[in-house]
Amino acid sequence: MSGYQTGVLIILCFNIMAAYAVYLPLVAGQLNLGIAGFMAIGAYTAAYLTNEMGWSLVSAIPAGGLAAGGLALLVAVPILRTHGIYLALATFALGQVISAVFLNLEVVGAAAGYPVSTYASPLAVFSVTAAIVLFVVGLSQTRFTLYLTAIKNDRLVADLLGLKVWGLQVAAFTLGAAIAGIGGGLYAHHFSFIEAQHFSVQLSIYTVLYVLLGGTQTVWGPLVGALFFSLVPELLRAGEAWRYVIFAALIVAFMAVRPQGLVTSTALRGIGRLFGRKPAAPGAQP
């Protein structure tokens, strides 16, 4: 594999991790517009632990994820009291504050950026991404994801059916943030340098956009969205601005025509049938 291909795959991996971080709370109908902030928490925590405390990668990156998840848990309690647009705006404000705090934090280089001495190989990035994808896919087979979908479809009915709506929402939000933190920690150690400006509101917004482009009905939507966002520009080889123009035009078109995104559960069933799997309808067999 050439260096270029590895580079593209690495970017794809980071986009996939960010996508699943946004996806998990979104299944429960919570739009997190501050995912870059949680990535920054993971990145700076892990980098500080390996740089100054001499931790190994294996312990520092999960610690970054824990820190991001911990902060999410801490803010989830007050933030999740708000719903809908207020929640999206609160996460947005949180992302801005986190990024601005790191911009001023002298311990980790403030505006000059923070070099990271320990290096995470491409293989490490690939395997962690694979593990996260497997984890979220596995989670989608459990009742947990089913509960989240129920909350999204109707909070009140979900509550009446005995679901702990609030606890499930906190769990989805925290889990998403922890994934973002792990992604951030890996990012810091793979590129050996982080700066607060990278974890900007644009990063959060683009992630949300490609997750919705992929679709949130199934667990594969975010993966397809991340693939699309990372690979199509490479294939087009157009200028940096044009890639965003095309991407944004597609988002607008998709939200107008097919708001459920590229991958839907019906589409997946159709593909399953194409490959000869019998539709699992009772009584279909003679």
Partner: peptide, 23 residues
């Protein structure tokens, strides 16, 4: 065109417009 879709869809679509206009 997005009325009746999930509540985050119009918001995301208008974010798409922001990115589109800027670029």
């Amino acid at each position: 065109r997005t009325r009746g879709a999930d509540p985050e869809v119009p918001l995301v679509s208008s974010l798409g417009f922001l990115v589109l206009l800027e670029n």
